[in-house]
Structure formats: C-alpha cells, structure tokens
C-alpha cells in the first residue's frame, strides 16, 4: 500500500465521520436552523472528503474532475436551499432556539 492509497483511506474515513456527525445532528438538534447547520456539515465536508479520497483513485484527470464537478454542484444546491429554507422559516416567525438560562 503506497502513500496515495493511505491518504485516500484517511480522507474517506474522515468523510464518513462527517456524514455520521450530520445525521446525529439532524436527529438530536432542537430546531430548524440548527438542523440546517448539521445538514451543511454532511453536504460540504462529508461529501467533499469522500470526493477527494475517491479522486485520488480516479483512473484519469477527466474522471477526477468529474467527481469534483459533482461536489461543486452539491455545494451550490446546498447553499441555495439552506438560504431559501432559513429565510422562509424566519419570515414565518419561527424563533431560533436558545439554551435555557440557568439561575446562578
């Protein structure tokens, strides 16, 4: 196993960890805005690291660039949708969640 394969394995495992973090956040976080935050982690970093790890194994430059293109498209989609959903949620009057104040 050479150094490129090792780097690829590390990147893939980091990407899967970010997907796990995104799913856990979607299950555990209290309101829409925080869940959007968790979804963005899975979209950008999880898919990004997975694509990087796979692009190191790609058979040619064109195949690697195609993988990066998939990631860029997912990035644009995720950013646009997060903006639309958060703006509509705020316009509907959903109050962002705050941690409860503790009396000292």
């Amino acid at each position: 196993m050479d150094i490129l394969d090792l780097l690829s394995v590390v990147l893939l495992i980091v990407g899967a960890a970010f997907f796990l973090a995104g799913t856990m956040g979607l299950l555990r976080f209290p309101d829409v805005y925080t869940r959007l935050h968790a979804l963005a982690k899975a979209d950008n970093l999880g898919l990004g690291f997975t694509v990087l790890g796979l692009a190191l194994q790609a058979p040619g430059v064109a195949a690697g660039l195609k993988l990066v293109l998939v990631w860029l498209l997912a990035l644009a989609a995720s950013a646009t949708l997060s903006y639309l959903i958060a703006r509509r949620a705020f316009a509907k009057g959903i109050v962002p969640w705050k941690p409860e104040e503790r009396e000292p």
Partner: peptide
C-alpha cells in the same frame, strides 16, 4: 415536528445517496 424537518431529512438522503453512488461506482 414541522414539514421543514421532514424535507431536511429528504435532502440528507439526496447527499448521502450521492456519496453511496460514488463509492459503488469505484
């Protein structure tokens, strides 16, 4: 609880589906 939460889960399905498809492709 709200419709947006259901839709966010569907969006997560889309992104994770992309990753699974790429892994299957390689």
């Amino acid at each position: 609880p709200t419709p947006a939460d259901r839709l966010l889960a569907a969006l997560l399905f889309g992104t994770t589906g992309v990753a699974v498809l790429l892994l299957l492709a390689y």
